[in-house]
Amino acid sequence: MDIYFIIEKLILISAILGVSLLIAMYTTLAERKFAGFFQDRVGPNRAGPWGILQPLADGVKLFTKEEIIPTNAGTFLFVLGPSLSMFTACITSAVIPWGPDLTLFGKTVALQVADINVGILYIFGVVSLGVYGIMIGGWASNNKFSLLGAIRAASQNISYELAMGLSIIALLMVTGTLSLREISIQQEGWHWNVLYQPIGFLIFLICSFAETNRTPFDLPECETELVGGHHTEYSSMKLGFYLFAEYINVFVSSAVLATLYFGGYNFPGMHLISNPNVVAILGVAALFIKILLFIFFFIWIRWTIPRFRYDQLMKLGWNILIPLSIINIVVTGLVIILKQ
């Protein structure tokens, strides 16, 4: 194996990890600012101008708090829970194509860590793994509220995974490939998948909200019923990991949504620019603008729509989304056959 290849990938991985952590950090601030705006308040504005040092202050606060591990908790699993949450949140971004190929010093650099030909399924697998962090942490806390949160997370995750998988099947019928890179290339010039799969997009979007445990689907940490849900017993940076993993998940989900349905790194007028490096840089910028819009959408929904009741959540998943996605598959198949 080529040493330059390893160095190139290492730089790319570090850059992506750094950017996702940075964006997750400032999403916490953006969330609180927008929450303030929606509720006619100011929001955090003490740390630095306009509160831009607030995430740092929060981080220092979480790091310096006392670490408490409950006496009857399983120590290893108690620590493993938040670590696993953070880990699964970070590894999803490996298959996302961040932009077209760059040409540096006569070498082609792909702006994607790994172009595996089952890219979508990889994302789907890692997303389904994300629930282990919550389940293990909730169980190891040895607390009834935590356990209830963990159980809710598990059942919610399984229910919405089905609808998500079915909406991906309809998307695959249109694209004919599982590789995210090829899907991005196919969408060049306004052939965005959301135009071909509007219902599939809607189902995928709703399921992304459920899989990231964001309002209106944040039943695992529903504070009116379960104190703090699965992280009731957690303090210090272990709590911080759970909270932070949620924001990384929001970022990665936004990136997946933008790549699968909103054209990825493609932008209007892409073919007019001849220099490939300029195209690559503008492509990355376009993808990040789309991602930021989706993050705003996540925040917007959180401060607008109240939380579901648990039976409503199950009903939406099993009685509405799954039949709808099956109908979507059938209609997609019929349209493809009729067009041939």
Binding site: L121, G125, S128, M135, I158, E161
Partner: peptide, 26 residues
Amino acid sequence: AQFLAIVNFIVYMGAIMVLILFAMMF
């Protein structure tokens, strides 16, 4: 065998074991 690998990952680790853990916690 990439496809088998990822399907094994999704079905057994992502679904079946979550269900088993779910039942055991009760």
